[in-house]
């Protein structure tokens, strides 16, 4: 009974781990890693939604005669989300480079000149 839920439990704990990293760490790079862990948890969650025991990749070749496929839509969604995650991460790292050039540190407690 519990076996079927293991991927979900794992994904949710990864998600919480990522969220905790964002909230508790002070280094900007670590915060971005936390963000990525959170995203990966959602990807894992999506993928496990479409999994079928014994299923193969959902590509119809007509040669091997596979009968059971895993659901392709969550895979397509995950791929899209991965691409978006890549774009966000690239943006984040580029801005982080600029932050380091301006502040000389990646500690978010010191990156606080904006007030009010």
């Amino acid at each position: 009974m519990i076996e079927g839920y293991i991927p979900y439990i794992f994904a949710i704990s990864l998600f919480v781990l990522g969220l905790g990293t964002i909230v508790m760490k002070n280094n900007l790079i670590k915060i971005l890693i936390g963000l990525d862990i959170m995203e990966s948890a959602v990807h894992l969650f999506l993928i496990s939604l479409g999994y079928r025991t014994g299923g193969t990749a959902p590509i119809w070749t007509g040669i091997t005669g596979e009968k059971i496929f895993v659901l392709p839509i969550p895979q397509a969604l995950t791929l899209t989300a991965i691409v978006i995650g890549l774009a966000t991460l690239a943006m984040a790292l580029s801005i982080t480079v600029q932050v380091y050039r301006h502040y000389g540190t990646l500690d978010i407690r010191e990156i606080r000149r904006l007030r009010g």
Binding site: V42, P74, R112, R113
Partner: peptide, 28 residues
């Protein structure tokens, strides 16, 4: 100013987007 505001916006904005994606995944 722009860099600091940008990184703040990015971190909280992406976290919010991830929450929204999780909501989409649950509904799906």
């Amino acid at each position: 100013e722009a860099v600091e505001a940008g990184i703040k916006y990015l971190v909280v904005g992406s976290a919010a987007s991830t929450l929204i994606l999780l909501a989409v995944a649950i509904l799906y």
